[in-house]
Simulated assay, not measured.
Amino acid sequence: MNTYLETAADVYKQAALKPDIGLCCTTSPIWQLPGLSIPRIMQEMNYGCGSTVHPRDLVHQPTILYVGVGGGMEVLQFSYFSRKKGGVIGLDVVDEMLEACHQNLLSAEKENSWFSRDFVDLRKGTALELPIEDNSVDVAAQNCLFNIFTPEDLQKALKEMYRVLKPHGRLVLSDPITEDPMPDSLKQDERLRALCLSGSLSLADYLRMITDAGFGTVEVRAKRPYRILAPGQYKTDQLIVLESVEVCAIKDPMPEDGPCIFTGKAAIYFGQEEYFDDHKGHVLMPNQPLAICDKTAGALANLGRNDIFISDSTYFYDGGGCC
Rank of each mutant, 00 (worst) to 15 (best):
N2W: 06
Y4G: 00
Y4K: 08
Q14L: 15
A16G: 11
A16E: 11
L17W: 07
K18E: 15
P19G: 09
C24T: 15
C25E: 14
T27H: 06
S28F: 07
S28Y: 08
L33P: 03
I38Y: 00
R40A: 13
I41W: 01
I41H: 07
M45S: 14
M45L: 10
N46H: 14
Y47K: 09
G48Q: 06
P55H: 03
P55R: 09
D57K: 05
G70I: 06
Y80R: 04
Y80E: 03
R83I: 11
K84N: 09
L91F: 10
D92S: 07
D92P: 06
V94G: 04
V94D: 00
M97G: 00
C101Q: 00
Q103T: 03
N104H: 04
E109G: 01
E111V: 08
N112F: 11
W114C: 10
F115R: 08
R117C: 14
L122D: 03
L130G: 01
D134N: 15
D134I: 12
Q142I: 02
C144F: 00
C144L: 00
F146R: 01
T150V: 09
E160S: 07
M161H: 13
R163C: 07
V164G: 00
V172C: 03
L173A: 02
S174R: 00
I177R: 04
T178L: 05
P181E: 11
S185P: 10
K187M: 06
C196W: 05
S200D: 06
L201T: 10
D205V: 14
Y206R: 12
L207R: 15
R208F: 14
I210P: 00
I210T: 04
D212K: 10
D212R: 06
G214Y: 05
G214D: 07
T217V: 10
V220M: 10
I228C: 12
L229V: 05
L229S: 05
Y234T: 02
Y234M: 09
Y234P: 01
K235Y: 13
L239Q: 13
L242W: 06
L242I: 03
S244G: 05
C248F: 06
D257N: 13
F262N: 03
K265A: 15
I268T: 15
F270W: 11
G271I: 06
Q272N: 15
E274Y: 13
D278N: 15
H279T: 12
H279Q: 14
P286Q: 07
P286I: 01
Q288N: 10
I292R: 02
C293V: 04
G298E: 11
A299E: 14
A301G: 13
N306W: 11
D307Q: 13
S311L: 12
D312A: 13
D312I: 09
D312K: 14
G320A: 10
G320S: 08
